[in-house]
Nucleic acid binder design. Structure first.
Lengths: 197, 197
DNA sequence: TGTACATCAGTGAACGCGCGTTCACTGATGTAC
DNA sequence: TGTACATCAGTGAACGCGCGTTCACTGATGTAC
């Protein structure tokens, strides 16, 4: 039963939206096409009417995930607020909603160059955002702001990834997030040393 | 055909050793038991003579990978040398040999608490190593050294993960490693700002 | 505007394949006497 | 020390299952006249 072109477009977007959540939760290899389609409200047979392959969906879903995060970022307040939100305890337990750089980095490294290119764009966006804020809020030079932004991006993604890779009740789960947030905040305030807890 | 107890032990260790490489290269979900056993020189049927499940092997392999890295670390020179080695371009293209925190973080986050506990121990070891070097080389207080070590660990693992998740020919692949190495080196030298490239 | 036909998104069965796991068997090793 | 038997690591076939992908079919939508 054929449907309207608009409905087709909406259905396709729903599949990508669901995939963006499920891939972040379970990894590219941890969830099947049938599961994605079922979560989107369809049977698996129609998948190839929309996408060339599972890998193609992975690329699109990763792209959408980065776009969603970029929008959230743009709506956030100052840089300190963004950092606190990124390294929050609630973020640690909501893999389906958070920055894909922290959940799908390993998966992307094992994927095609298509996925990696999407990943690079997303990381570049995060770096550019932080760089921009550093220039405006901290009045740093373009070069200085850029280098610091790259460093902060690596630290943020690494901290969230590591915090999620340890047991919920392990001290490191909280300590990594707190210590790195303190360190990041100290850095954007131009202090050379970390606060004494 | 039964073999000596020593041979049994050696065979078991060979399987874990091979798994430690293959899991880092392909992820827990990206490589099968039959492949691991074949790479170790056996048929797949004997797997359960050594391990309770694939998940159990994942935990043991992750543990061994962290141990191997800890030994390499202990043999490295000063902290600056370790940082340069960790963020080297060759490390980026040898996933099977590098720190599992940078390759299996996402996989561990989706695994059992057994695997996560192993992961936590490994990350703790990396933090302790850096903390120790910071105290000895930079004469920092225990608390200051610890906080900085946590921050550096997050940045190192994040940088290596991100560098591997972008295409080989993408500028970010080199830039992330270089910029973060510069940033880390500046930090352990007690400078408040990053070098101007 | 109305009609006839082509299009195509979604369905559900089916394909081949590889997965994790189990099992009967083999035969050299380990052990009890 | 020698003998008889139990043990068990490794083999390879087999299990059920879920995977990514294909396909014939349906029927409402889109379109050509």
């Amino acid at each position: 039963m054929r449907i309207t072109q608009q409905q087709t477009q909406e259905n396709r977007e729903r599949i990508v939206h669901v995939a963006a959540r499920l891939y972040r939760e379970h990894g590219f290899d941890g969830i099947g096409i049938a599961d994605v389609m079922k979560s989107a409200g369809f049977t698996h047979g129609g998948f190839y009417n929309h996408f060339a392959s599972k890998e193609a969906l992975a690329a699109e879903a990763t792209k959408l995930a980065f776009q969603e995060i970029a929008e959230t970022r743009a709506r956030s307040g100052d840089l300190a607020t963004f950092l606190a939100a990124y390294l929050s305890a609630t973020n640690r337990t909501r893999p389906g909603q958070i920055c894909p750089a922290a959940t799908l980095g390993g998966d992307a490294a094992r994927s095609s160059d298509d996925v990696k290119a999407v990943f690079a764009d997303g990381v570049q966006g995060m770096i550019s955002f932080i760089e921009d804020r550093l220039r405006k809020e901290c009045h740093l030079s373009k070069e200085e702001a850029h280098n610091r932004a790259v460093n902060l991006t690596a630290k943020l993604t690494g901290a969230l990834m590591l915090a999620r890779a340890v047991p919920d009740d392990h001290p490191l789960a909280r300590e990594i997030l707190k210590s790195c947030l303190d360190g990041c905040l100290a850095e954007i305030r131009g202090q050379s040393s970390l606060p004494q807890t």
